[in-house]
């Protein structure tokens, strides 16, 4: 692998930052240079969150250029659309099929985009778009907070790291109590995306 540029995005509280931390740590374990950077704004919860993760033999800028993202991993649909223009042509978008309408939408000031609008934005660059039911799967597993590891599982087949590296990093980043369920969520995501005929 020459380089891999990845955006992980979602809404504050969905576990975006832990996910990008794990990806960067896994990159080191796989012998790569890496940088990651988050933009979280000023809120504790509920704002847009975006993580840039860059992997390669030598990484300079922590920020990815527009049009160079290989994989866009989005935990929410509006956030997927917001960063669609960062995808490179023939990039991959993996989107959790979840709409979290911002307050402005509830107040009737703005509109939440339709699925078609989102897909149209992503299609302009991506040639593979996966809309996955991550929140549903996480609920089925018994803990909605495993969404991020499910989504990471979905992205993992596109990142050439050994499965043991992922498992080690997930284990190291999560406390005992929720380790197993998160490993299961990862496994489930990995399987689900494989069945989606990649």
């Amino acid at each position: 692998m020459k380089k891999l540029d990845m955006l992980v995005t979602g809404v504050g509280g969905q576990g975006v930052i832990l996910t990008s931390d794990i990806i960067a740590q896994a990159a080191i374990a796989a012998g790569y240079d890496t940088k990651k950077t988050d933009t979280i704004g000023m809120s504790q919860r509920g704002g847009s969150v975006i993580s840039h993760v860059r992997i390669g033999s030598k990484v300079h800028s922590p920020l990815i250029k527009q049009g160079e993202v290989d994989i866009l991993l989005a935990f929410e649909k509006l956030e997927a659309a917001r960063w669609g223009h960062y995808l490179r042509s023939r990039g991959i978008a993996i989107v959790n099929n979840l709409a979290l309408p911002p307050l402005s939408v509830s107040l009737g000031e703005e509109q939440y985009l339709s699925d078609d609008e989102m897909l149209n934005i992503l299609k302009q660059q991506a040639d593979r778009i996966y809309l996955v039911n991550g929140s549903q799967r996480a609920k089925e597993l018994g803990n909605i907070r495993t969404l991020n590891m499910f989504m990471l599982g979905c992205a993992s087949p596109f990142i050439p790291f050994k499965i043991s590296i992922w498992q080690d990093e997930i284990s190291q980043h999560l406390p005992d109590k929720v380790r197993q369920i998160n490993l299961s969520a990862f496994e489930r995501g990995r399987k689900e995306i494989r069945n989606a005929n990649i």
Binding site: V11, G12, G41, M42, S43, Q44, R45, G46, G47, S48, Q66, G67, L78, E79, A81, R82, G84, H85, P101, P102, L103, S104, V105, E110, Q111, Y112, L113, E117, N120, I121, Q124, Q125
Partner: peptide, 20 residues
């Protein structure tokens, strides 16, 4: 110039908020 991605929809903003 790279072709700009056409975004026909104005995306709803998600500013930080006071928490529940």
């Amino acid at each position: 110039a790279r072709e700009k991605i056409g975004i026909t929809t104005e995306l709803a903003k998600r500013p930080p908020l006071l928490c529940p």
